[in-house]
Design a protein around this nucleic acid. Structure first.
Lengths: 225, 225, 225, 225
DNA sequence: CATGAATGAGGCTTCATTCAT
DNA sequence: GATGAATGAAGCCTCATTCAT
């Protein structure tokens, strides 16, 4: 409440710092990222960074928060664009959108996966050591928690719509369909995006692969084969 | 002489240290792992760890090397067990084996994914900063490079066998099929294993999910389009 | 901005650290000097030392830089004091000044000799191993390079002046005379200063020795051959 | 007594190690020299090095001891060669010999100077910290002490002979003459040898410089001008 | 609010030395 | 006598974080 929205100048600087943080995290990873570099790239002092973000972890969560926001924007737009079309088209568009999102914002996809691991192991009460306590207590961690389910719900709702309008024949639970689609997509992204921007892997055209993957998803939703 | 195989006693201690390293890396991650803890858990002194593994990075690559070896063992065994069966069964078994491998050796799956990113970005000549130079120069990095393609080749060969014996109808290139299967599997594992060991995600039974995923894969392989 | 001159407070602390470094280097030598001790003696933390001087080597070069500066001060003053006198007197005063300088600042003389070796072997491209790369890359190494020739030039100019005003009869090249004088002086200093502050060596009064050495130098300069 | 002379095989290995130590010390200096490298270059194990030389310091003193021995050999030979000639010629030859010795065995000249500093500061009871206690207690340190004065005495004796046979006119104490000559020589060597093997310094031909230095020494001994 | 100097715990790594085989 | 694996003290350096100005 005291944050992002209240003061425009403040919000502006905050965003600049997050921009910078994204650059740094993306190029060297969290562990090797230096707060000094973040400050430098943002054109502010280290103290300023700490004024807005109490810890490095919190800054990381701020990036995660933004990732989720950006993803949501992507999703809302896609869903809106497909409002008139049958649900299956919307869902497939969402998948493509997600892939595009990951390709364009490589860091965001990593960050979100990190968050998931983090979140999961927190709930399990397992090895807290892995995740700094600071992280869990950070302001942005809570903010992220508040919106973490938005994308999932959006997508599942679209699947449900497809079921209703009959474009999706597959009768499995929407959640299961969601997981299947998500897993394929994450795997695809992980193999491609995470590492590089090569046009081929094992001499397979990335685009060819992507198209086939989409085709498979469509069939799954249509429950054909 | 510097190798793990030459001297049994030496090899034994080397392995003990890698065991220990796995524990530590698994519980706190590479960045937060302390060489001292590795030494402690292995029951040796810090110096000894450095006697066998020159750097922390090299130790990490040693774990990666072992991960690949273990995976290979799994694969060989699976392939052998399915020698008499049609190729499609072998391939599907391999996928299951891979999932089991990841579930059982969570660290190994992470480590291998890390290696892939590393390897990819190295080739692309991108952000070397992200990956320590020490890593690329490490002895084990080269060792890993030598065997990195073994699993891929094994699997692709099985797909080819399935094509030959007619059990796999899908006429796409084996490499493409491999990538599709691999992506699904990695995504599945990433969503499940990476985070925790819960029995459900979004109230979906993991086993149910897995079975459906396997079914889809089978259909893909059987696809005659 | 990183310079010693910009911020007075900053410059002050920087100097305090160099003071401290001199003490430590002087008493235990570079190799055994601990950065922590330097910090302690300067009344600051280890981190602060590294804030001002990135490496131990750079700190050493900072001392060298100061040594050259101090020597220059000595020389300027001596030359100025002898402005009205014939060149030969100036040159001989310079030699005495140099000896005094070395006696008073034993460390400085060692440090300067070290620098010479370093510099020489760098140019020759020989055994880089001996001299840390860090040393050559240090900020202060470059600074030192910028002023290393000042003393030499000052002295040679005075020799030339002596030649012009006829007080120095010796017709050899000023550079040669400089080297001769320098060698004698360095040797004298090395035998005396480097080791201790005893009043005799081989039962020879140091002062007696020094006077004779000066007398010889005078004769050389007066030499008309 | 238990050493070098008793067992030929032993003595041989000992010498090989010292050979190796010389190489290593010469190329990287004492501080950076690693016992492992010494062992490696000598073709023996680290344990063996320690069998013969209890500490790194002792090994260094062994090199020093050898340096003195070699210098003595040079001196004896020179003196013998000049037995029939007037003392002044012998003394000047000795100086040349010493210069040659230093040029040929750069390490030896450094080592001997180091020893002097060490020895001096030990006697003065000053900063013991600088020199490891281990050094002073080392076997070879004592050995060196036993023969440290040999060269000095040899030279002074030759100066005395020159005085007696009338070839040296200078009536100063032989010790003083020795110191004067030694200082010049050490300075010359320090400026030349210590750093590199360039043919010129300040565009002065080294040979030219050396000849002039010798000429000056001759004049000093002749007390001419 | 912003700055950037200062801190100091913490980690990796080195290497002289020891000692069981 | 050799070997070389093992030790562990010691030191350099990093960097998140704090705080006086």
């Amino acid at each position: 409440m005291t944050n992002a929205q209240s003061n425009p100048r403040r919000s502006q600087k905050e965003n600049k710092i997050i921009d910078s943080a994204e650059e740094v995290f993306a190029s060297v990873g969290f562990a090797k990222a230096k707060m000094e570099d973040v400050a430098g790239k943002a054109g502010v002092s280290k103290g300023t960074v700490y004024f807005y973000f109490d810890t490095k972890e919190n800054l990381y969560m701020a990036v995660t928060y933004r990732a989720l926001q950006v993803l949501n924007d992507y999703l809302y737009r896609t869903i809106n664009d497909n409002r008139e079309k049958p649900g299956i088209e919307s869902v497939l568009s969402i998948v493509e959108t997600y892939i595009n999102f990951c390709e364009k914002h490589r860091l965001y996809s990593e960050v979100m996966l990190d968050y998931m691991s983090l979140n999961r192991s927190t709930r399990d009460g397992r090895d807290k050591s892995k995740l700094t306590t600071a992280l869990i207590e950070s302001l942005y961690y809570r903010r992220v928690q508040d919106i973490q389910n938005l994308p999932i719900n959006l997508i599942i709702d679209e699947i449900k719509r497809g079921r209703k309008d009959g474009s999706i024949k597959n009768s499995k639970r929407p959640e299961l369909l969601y997981l299947i689609a998500w897993a394929c997509t994450i795997g695809f992204v992980k193999l491609n995006v995470a590492g590089g921007q090569r046009q081929t892997l094992l001499n397979v055209e990335i685009n060819h692969w992507k198209e086939y993957q989409m085709e498979i998803l469509r069939r799954i939703l249509l429950d054909e084969n």
